[in-house]
Design a protein around this nucleic acid. Sequence first.
DNA 1: CTGAAAGCGCTTACAG
DNA 2: CTGAAAGCGCTTACAG
Lengths: 337, 337
Amino acid sequence: MSATIHDVARSAGVSIKTVSRVLNGESNVAAPTAALVHAAIAALDYHPNLAARSLRTGASDTIGVIVDSLSDPFFAKLISVFEDRATAHGMDILVASTGADEERARMQVTRMVRRNVNGLLIAPFGPSLTALPEPGVVPTVLIDRHTEGSAYDEVIVDDEAAAYTAVSHLIAHGHQRIGFVGESLRFSTVHHRLLGYRRALDDNAVTLTPEYVHTACWDSDTATKLTKAMLKLDEPPTAIFASTPVTGVGVLSGMRAVGRADVALVVFGDFPLSTVIEPAVTVVDQVPVDLANTAMDRLLARLGGDTSPPTSTVVATQFLIRGSGELPPTDRPMSPR
Amino acid sequence: MSATIHDVARSAGVSIKTVSRVLNGESNVAAPTAALVHAAIAALDYHPNLAARSLRTGASDTIGVIVDSLSDPFFAKLISVFEDRATAHGMDILVASTGADEERARMQVTRMVRRNVNGLLIAPFGPSLTALPEPGVVPTVLIDRHTEGSAYDEVIVDDEAAAYTAVSHLIAHGHQRIGFVGESLRFSTVHHRLLGYRRALDDNAVTLTPEYVHTACWDSDTATKLTKAMLKLDEPPTAIFASTPVTGVGVLSGMRAVGRADVALVVFGDFPLSTVIEPAVTVVDQVPVDLANTAMDRLLARLGGDTSPPTSTVVATQFLIRGSGELPPTDRPMSPR
DNA sequence: CTGAAAGCGCTTACAG
DNA sequence: CTGAAAGCGCTTACAG
């Protein structure tokens, strides 16, 4: 039903090879011939069959994106930027989630490779390399999280330095008892944020209190529970550093549940409503748009034939001071239980 | 480099047709033969070439999703559910955004069709049918918004009824001056939410005040600006109904900017932090998970050969009363300007 | 500058 | 229950 290259060739009175040349912008076609072909293409509303092209060339004009979750606002923002950029280059994007499950991540990579994606953008997790494509199979750029020993370009932020800044900021505002509410240390980002937290304490001669450090807050609800527990300690923290927006929301919820809006808070990662909450939430903004654009730049360079050694690009974060991180420490006595 | 069906056939000592039969689960293969083929497939780590299959069959085991924006939390949630379901059926999803631009929407549909997607899930906008695939080209299900005269299944919510409930709730709590902050009426959803708003006023003998009705809040910032302006009227509204989470966030921001946390608020659509804000925000929850699953059910039915006439499925919403919609009207005098 | 032939890796009739 | 042939719609050498 749809016109094929043969129809165009017949209509233009040339061979299919010439049509193919015009289609692929090859230079060696006489101008009048090219015009004839263009006219035929327009007249027949011809569009090349992508599956046929893909079968022949092994590519697909498609970019695969693999992240933990498609509904997480951070990843959703990355995807949004990837799609804009891909569309501008005539490519489509295929998305897949891993749920931070290694088995599923492996499967998603395999599926993408089988789909002949031109390139892959992956938010890796855990130290394992098995959930990444084998080197040489498909150009790949890793985003947000570092994987030791990978053969790929990566685009990350300096999590440790940003966390260091954030926690130092809390200490500078008089806080000595600072909670750390983090997701799993399986994520290199959370691991480095914890390192930054510890270094800030060390450099300011603040003793680390194990009861204040939580590294298994899988979701908002867990963060809420742990926050409530922390704030009920005999010596509760006067400030909390949340390692991600998801845990940050949980912390806010926990603070609210025990009626403690006076606890200082800094969240790693900006989120909608952060400026509407009272007090507005001080955050480390990872600037996901920059992260995504930089990663896409790398991938496009690789697709363009760049074969230089893998690079590690560190995108700048922004520390946005809004109020919640500047609350003075209160030492209101708490009921013992 | 990768094994082909010929390699498997040779290794198993059968013809490629027999391998193809096994691959596609056709019944008429002798058990011992099938076992031989399976062994060869496993030994060679064979995976069928998807492009070749797609070229031959005209399908691609792929579902296309087209929405306004990939980073909007509502659409991101829908996509997340679509991906889960698609993965469970061995299909991948291709995503594209329209930016609510008809030209771009048309282009995205064309691209998806050219990619031979098995099915399409589209959040349409505006009355135009030109941004939808021509009937018969590809099974399509429309989500969230109604398009008059389309030939496709649709899965929507009863926007008018839900808005009616929300606004009636405000009136029942003593409010007579109720603002409507909406995005464009191009969206059938917003249009119907406005109808529900008007009907609730009518049924309760509340006069509609044109200054309270805004239907061009493209983004949060516009909603903020209009909210601030409304609250500075000589007779400001005592309650506001926001037609979407995006405008709702803008309204909250505007209320905060003029120091009016005492204005009642109901938002159409739940959003993260709605329970953490003080007071917690009363919302009409569209239950995006239900919407997405129902749409996917319809699409899978169509892919399974269902050729019955197009259906319109209305998914139930939930009215979540949390505090912000129950604030009593205050009649604090405002400065005249 | 242009074209005829071959073939990418599958599935679809068709035959036995 | 099994197979040989044809062909989906392109691009890739190769020839002229």
